[in-house]
Every structure is written in C-alpha cells, then in structure tokens.
Design a binder for these strands. Sequence first.
DNA 1: ATTACATACATAGTTTTCTTATGTATGTAA
DNA 2: TTACATACATAAGAAAACTATGTATGTAAT
Lengths: 112, 112
Amino acid sequence: MSTSPLLKGTLQTIILKLLEDNDQMYGYEITQKVKELTAGEMKLTEGALYPALHKLEADGLLETFNEIVDNRVRKYYRLTEQGGQEVTSKLQEAQAFIEQLQAVLNLKPQAL
Amino acid sequence: MSTSPLLKGTLQTIILKLLEDNDQMYGYEITQKVKELTAGEMKLTEGALYPALHKLEADGLLETFNEIVDNRVRKYYRLTEQGGQEVTSKLQEAQAFIEQLQAVLNLKPQAL
DNA sequence: ATTACATACATAGTTTTCTTATGTATGTAA
DNA sequence: TTACATACATAAGAAAACTATGTATGTAAT
C-alpha cells in the first residue's frame, strides 16, 4: 500500500469485502478497483496484495481457479463459505475501529 | 494496542493529537485517556506506547520534563513547535484514510 | 503480614505487515 | 524497439505493534 503507512491491517478486510461485492476477482483487478473507489488516492502494490491473497487462501477464506484470457492466465479468487462469514465480522471490526479513532482524534462530534 | 490489529500507524497521530488538546501528559495518563475516550474498547499497551513516545521525542516532535508526584517520577511530554505543525498534517492524513477506507468498504453512502 | 492491584516507567524478543526491488511473460501503442 | 499496461510472483528489508518481562511505589484487602 502506498500513500501513507496508515492502512496496515485493513488490507485483508478490503480484499474480503471486494470479493463479497464482486463474487470473483483476480489480483490485478483488485488493484484497479481500489484505485477506482478511492479516486486514485489509495494504491495497492503487488508486494502487499499477492502475499495477502495467498494467506487468505491458506487460511481457507478464499478459493481460486484459473482462466485463460488473451493467452494470459488469470487467477480468480472467490470467497469460501468461511470467508463469507469472516467478511461480516471484519467489517464490524473496521467500523468499530473507525469510530474509536474518530472519538480519540475528535474528528467528529462525539457523545461521550 | 489490543482489541484488533487495525491500529498500526495511527498511534503517533493519537499521541500528537492528545498532546495538542491537553498541553502536557505522561505515559500512563495517555493510556487512561485513550481508554476513557473509547469507552474501554481501545487499549494501549506499554510495549506500543513507550517506544512510540521515545521515537517522537527522538524525531523532535515531543519534548519531556520530569516531575515527582507521590515519590514517583512522572515523565511529562509536550509538543515542540515542530510537533505542533505535524499534528495538523497527521490529522488530515487520518481523515483522508478514514474516508478512503469507508469508500472501499462501502461503509457509508459515497458520492463517486 | 502479605497478597493483589493500580500507578509509572522501561526494554527485549518476536511476529505481523507493508515497502521496495526484482523477475517472468504477453499484448499494444508510439 | 521502446514503453507501458496487463498479470502473476517472491525475496529482502523496514516499520510497527504485541507479548512478556523487569523495576519500583502506593493502597486496599485479607
């Protein structure tokens, strides 16, 4: 991930969420989707993405299958059943984290 | 930091912001403040806090002075001038990060 | 008395995660 | 034929956090 060292730990959540919304995606497609969704401000590097994908697969949250498009192999990723369950809890964690961060940094009015 | 591995990179921002709001604080006080502001959900561990404080001091963003309270030394931290400037940019970074994350995770309606 | 917990600092070892750099290979546009 | 986009991957290193531990004092409980 580029821009800033702020994203640590959330990459897995991003991958899982994108695969929940898009059913199946390949690595390069994910990098482009993230760029698109953040108007180019968040950039996923391969060195971060591919190890993260491999880990999610090893953990049983993703499964893969290959397709050949224009003579090039594309490795598609899809959520497993376990992965589908994980998305929900990871998203809740992310939401909670954002709210806590906003509270500590006083980034929005907070009723505490 | 406990709860989740989501906070990496934001600890410095939290420290700087708390010192902007509170003028001077000591380490233990910071851990308690974070706990208070997040209703106990975010917990700062010493192993994360003290190295972070020392690094910020080494980088010239914080300065320290000791006071003795109840026979115990308290090491107070305060923003330097440079530190005061850094707070603003770190906060903007954090705000931008939150917005990008919300966009990618589709956590709130986004006009893109 | 002494155990436990809160206050208050600190560091060492390890792990996780990301960045940078590099490598392979194909297709297309200049 | 050079450059860039597409598409995968790994290795080396750095950054940052976590876990565990250590010191020391004050206070409350047993």
